[in-house]
């Protein structure tokens, strides 16, 4: 497949978080890290070695971790909490809501192993509702970067951004194609320009969208691929600008269809100029064990699905 963006290597997005945290912490002594018994999985080991006095091992006690982070933030620290996405959200939702969001604490909730691409561990750990939960909380910023480089850049950027942030990333090795790209919270990035359909993708699904664009191009369809790394606040201006050109949308995300990026985009569309939108997302079901790419294909999140949805969106505007 001849994609417009290429990659030479794969790396996990969680490593982008670990490397970004270390770099941010070197520049800002107020940054502290907390982890709930998953230091290796979150790639927080380098931070822990470099700044042992600024690292807090909380053990398997996520609610306590979020509360302690809220306290550290109250006293002026910039805490980054690390655990799996499921334990960063659904397990501690009330703590996020009261002690962090409502209390306006500058806590960075950093969540790995999000979505189906967690793979073999299965549905207990494959949270697909976390974007919805966090975007519903007032004061929260929600970010889901797409590769190692963007995750590293996002981690450094959120350290400078004041306010609660949910930063979502994942486990598998994934194509790296965003090296050297600047990261601005809330600012979408147009990766490939096109005129027939806009594909708005977030997280791992960006690479899927890039591959889908190549397939569509071979059939003479011109797709625009837009990197929506920040789901909240959503870059409505970039979305509407693209749709003014293409007049139809596909959203692509590793999340439930309810509550995700697609839903936020649909709200933007109906409040402005209604155009057809198709959704690439998990359709109201739980995941299962398997290899990451196999799972994406089975649950309708593969390249084939993005291509089909793009064609359908184009058909619907005619």
């Amino acid at each position: 497949m001849n994609t417009k963006l290429t990659y030479t290597a794969k790396k996990d997005t969680r490593s982008g978080f670990g490397d970004g945290l270390l770099e941010a912490a070197k520049n800002n002594p107020e940054i502290v890290g907390l982890c709930a018994d998953l230091t290796g999985s979150l790639k927080m080991g380098a931070f822990r070695r470099e700044f042992p006095e600024r690292f807090f091992q909380v053990g398997i006690a996520e609610a306590n971790m979020i509360g302690i982070a809220a306290g550290l933030a109250t006293a002026g620290k910039i805490p980054f909490t690390g655990t799996f996405a499921n334990f960063s959200t659904s397990r501690v939702y009330d703590q996020l809501r009261q002690s962090v969001a409502y209390s306006e604490k500058n806590v960075k909730v950093c969540a790995s192993h999000a979505g189906l691409t967690l793979g073999e561990d299965g549905a207990t750990h494959q949270v697909l509702e976390d974007i919805g939960m966090t975007k519903m909380l007032p004061n929260f910023t929600v970010i889901n970067p797409c590769d190692y480089h963007q995750t590293k850049a996002a981690t450094i950027a959120v350290a400078e951004h004041h306010g609660p942030v949910y930063l979502r990333f994942g486990r598998p090795g994934w194509p790296m194609f965003m090296e050297g790209q600047p990261f601005e919270v809330g600012k979408a990035i147009t990766l490939i320009e096109g005129s027939d359909v806009s594909i708005f993708a977030t997280g791992h699904l960006l690479w899927t969208a890039i591959e889908a664009e190549a397939v569509l191009a071979e059939e003479g369809i011109s797709a625009e691929v837009i990197n929506i790394h920040t789901i909240k606040p959503l870059d409505e201006e970039a979305i509407l600008k693209s749709l003014a050109k293409t007049n139809c949308a596909v959203s692509a995300e590793e999340h439930q269809i309810a509550g995700g990026l697609g839903e936020s985009i649909a709200q933007t569309i109906v409040r402005n100029e209604p155009v057809p939108q198709e959704f690439v997302a998990v359709n109201d079901r739980f995941g299962e064990s398997g290899k990451p790419v196999d799972l994406l294909n089975k649950y309708g999140l593969g390249v084939k699905s993005v291509v089909e949805k793009a064609k359908r969106a184009i058909q619907r505007k005619e």
């Binding site: 502290v32 006095e53 600024r54 807090f56 609610a63 306590n64 971790m65 979020i66 509360g67 302690i68 982070a69 809220a70 306290g71 550290l72 933030a73 109250t74 006293a75 002026g76 620290k77 805490p79 009330d94 703590q95 809501r97 009261q98 002690s99 409502y102 209390s103 604490k105």
Partner: peptide, 25 residues
Amino acid sequence: IRIASGSLGQGLSVAIGVALAKKLN
């Protein structure tokens, strides 16, 4: 007022966080 409270069980954790920050500082 430094934290919202009402949903029970959260304040002890918050206080610990502040206590840790005081030690660091």
